[in-house]
């Protein structure tokens, strides 16, 4: 459970850090860079979540006797 909880906190941390980077870059006047940073943070979280989703569907296939 600790691993799952740490994973959860990592993703929340990424979300908060990305939001802070976005506001900081916006104040510095680099608006487009801010959007790029948000996009990259989003993609990192996407990878983590999709990996877990794939593992979940794999386990479901094995347990529920799908082909």
């Amino acid at each position: 459970m600790i691993v799952d909880a740490s994973l959860l906190f990592q993703i929340a941390g990424i979300g908060i850090v990305v939001a802070m980077i976005h506001t900081v870059l916006k104040q510095m006047g680099k608006e487009d860079l801010a959007h790029w940073a948000t996009l990259i943070g989003f993609i990192i979280v996407l990878f983590i979540v999709i990996e877990n989703l794939a593992e979940l569907f794999q386990q479901i296939k094995s347990v529920f006797l799908f082909q």
């Binding site: 959860l8 993703i11 877990n52």
Partner: peptide, 8 residues
């Protein structure tokens, strides 16, 4: 990212 958190 909040929605991703719910999904995870």
């Amino acid at each position: 990212i909040a929605f991703f958190l719910v999904l995870l």
